[in-house]
Nucleic acid binder design. Structure first.
Lengths: 192, 192
DNA sequence: ATCGAATGAGACACTGATGTCTCATTGGGT
DNA sequence: ACCCAATGAGACATCAGTGTCTCATTCGAT
């Protein structure tokens, strides 16, 4: 059932197309199928041959984003070491996926009742587990629920990525600002 | 040039329509003009008589949101007292506008090159000034720029509002969670 | 009770995007 | 050099949403 592996030709690299689509759609979420095709350097017909429709394309992008986020989690090894350092590693690894994440979150809001990809629940669980672990370690406060911290995590990544893309803040500060705010907050404390 | 004040009838309250539109669009951003009209309890033709088109409707919602945000700022009296307490008051006042704010931010991303309403810049300036004041007071850390803190503020309000609307987190925790995270961060500190 | 502004419902043309199809062309494998 | 899968370009029908218009009806002011 592998559409994308043919006996002879593989002229159009599915992943390459997805990356081009992601790059465009994260900047202009309403981009047309034709625009996506041109951005990927292929014809609209070919785009349709690989992705049945706009929905299918978005679903594929969702799959790509989920894979990259899972990979980022794996690389960050969030189960190892102090939780705050793990959060620091995680933010660093997730940063490149920020724009795509932001796009997918917005897009997902439209799929109201439709079944959500269970991948999101798995990711939520991983982030949530990290914060819970931090609480059990005594590193994180216990009055902020893991669910809220998870929302805040994704929220900061998303709006941070957008702010960078929009030029409102400097890209080089992304990681530091998000980690420091997430962990330490804005208030000046005695320590540090 | 006041379309909405007639000699005799004012059957359709423009503000009432806007509130209904906001309530619907914040849940389903792709709602059709027809759906908006039905949600407001009026006919589509009447909706068009009051708002030239979908664009005009969104612009009007933007105006409404900006007014409410400005009003929230005023009520929070962000220029008075310690900056952290001011932030606390501000979050409390802004909370009800959260969903609308979230909708408008997403919607604004589409108006790519078009001229942005200068109201946003004014609001940014007010929030930014609050954080800067806090830094000058010695209440806030100085290694997090006011611009980033402002982005984080709006980001947390927006994603928090959405998480509540989606039922992922409890509405009653909104204010506390956002303020505590924004000010104190996730890390357990010696104080408090 | 009357008048007229405002409304609701429906018809209509228009637009933009989508999805499908055909056909000539390309380019890699043999 | 040949073959054929895959592509690009374009034509086409379709569909949903929009914006405009008409006309009968409603309802408040007088």
């Amino acid at each position: 059932m592998s559409h994308w592996v043919y006996g002879r030709l593989m002229s159009v690299d599915r992943t390459q197309v997805l990356r081009a689509a992601a790059a465009l759609l994260t900047r202009k979420a309403t981009a047309t199928m034709d625009e996506v095709a041109r951005a990927a350097g292929i014809g609209r017909a070919t785009l349709h041959r690989h992705f049945a429709g706009r929905d299918a394309l978005v679903r594929a992008l969702e799959e790509l984003g989920l894979q990259e986020l899972e990979a980022a989690h794996d690389r960050a090894r969030t189960e190892e070491g102090p939780a705050d350092e793990a959060v620091r590693r995680l933010v660093a690894e997730v940063e490149p996926v920020g724009p795509l994440l932001s796009f997918l979150v917005t897009e997902n809001q439209l799929f109201e009742g439709d079944q959500q990809n269970e991948g999101w629940a798995r990711l939520d669980a991983r982030v949530s587990a990290l914060f819970r672990r931090g609480q059990e370690q005594g590193v994180f406060r216990i009055d902020l629920t893991p669910a809220w911290l998870t929302e805040a995590f994704y929220g900061l990544i998303g709006s941070g990525a957008w702010a960078v893309q929009d030029g409102r803040v400097a890209a080089k500060d992304f990681q530091y600002m998000i980690v420091e705010l997430l962990l330490g907050g804005a208030r000046r404390s005695v320590e540090k």
